[in-house]
Amino acid sequence: MKHDMVTITIDGRKTSVPVGTTILAAAQQMGIHIPVLCHHPKLTVTGACRVCIVEIGGQPVTSCTAVAEEGMEVTTASPYIEGLRRDIVDLILSDHPYDCMVCERAGDCELQELAYKYSIRQPVFQGERRIYTKRDGNPFIERDMEKCILCGRCVKVCDEVQGVGAIDYAYKGFETKICPPFERDLDCEFCGQCIAVCPTGALVSKPSLGKGRKRNVNTVETVCPYCGCGCNITYDVVKNEVIRARSRQDTINEGWLCVKGKFGFSFINSPDRLTTPLIRKDGKLVPAGWDEALDLIGERLRKIRAADGPDAIAGLSSARCTNEENYLFQKLMRAGVGTNNVDHCARY
């Protein structure tokens, strides 16, 4: 046995993991599924939902916090543990609006999956439910705090990943709620990371509302067209229309996008979008083919250079082009036209 490894037994199977590995991580590596609601692989440990409990030495312990120790014997799904898990999910559901039928996240909701797994149609524990009015005026994020299970992922992603800290817990006890300071409307960077990590329908993208749920969409893996960074992006597409942008954790983007990638895709289907070159003829812009347009540009550039010299020409390129495209453009200006008059909109 290596010095920095410990050997533990999970559900009767032995495994060796590095010192400091949590039971949850060790189980995941072995392909053993333990349900979680607050844990997120990119965020620090929270320990709030308690559904990842496992049995260690007869005691229920949260596997997201328990660290593997030499010789530990872990049972991930004894009847006792499954009973406790079921009751925890039951408690969450007892304070949850039963409106999966109209929820944006139906079919893609981590809570719904657990309700299904434990077959909880009506909670055993019943009582008052939190009632809030939705009133966010921002154009991007729909916050339905009645569906919030207080997993804390949004608070953590906003703080730990985005470094913004736009939201946090407020109030105590049953009234505890995640909100912006003083319960004002959300006014932040609108990166949408919080939507990406929310396990339920509490946070959803406003531009996508009502346009299609998981089972109705086709997903397309592509590169974000918004800027030259080239983020990996996943589009949910319905009838050839992009309705939602996401980032998968197993891509170079690790699940994160910015406000533009996340919400800025309506231009794709906008009627204002230019899809062919336009040439002004007799004072009017008329659609033209690419060859015609490029010929015209080449001809006019040559004429200007002959008449007034290369420095009469300047080129401005776009941050939405890739590095390679921008490289070629400056090459065209410097080597082709022969001027150093070239700039870029993101150069300030």
């Binding site: 320990g47 408690l91 207080l150 049953f174 505890t176």
Partner: peptide
């Protein structure tokens, strides 16, 4: 205890509420 629960974890936040209701 319900009022004073910090609200972080499910069994306490919702459990104390359900127990006081019962």
């Amino acid at each position: 205890l319900q009022r004073e629960s910090c609200g972080k974890c499910v069994p306490c936040r919702i459990g104390t509420k359900r127990m006081s209701e019962l």
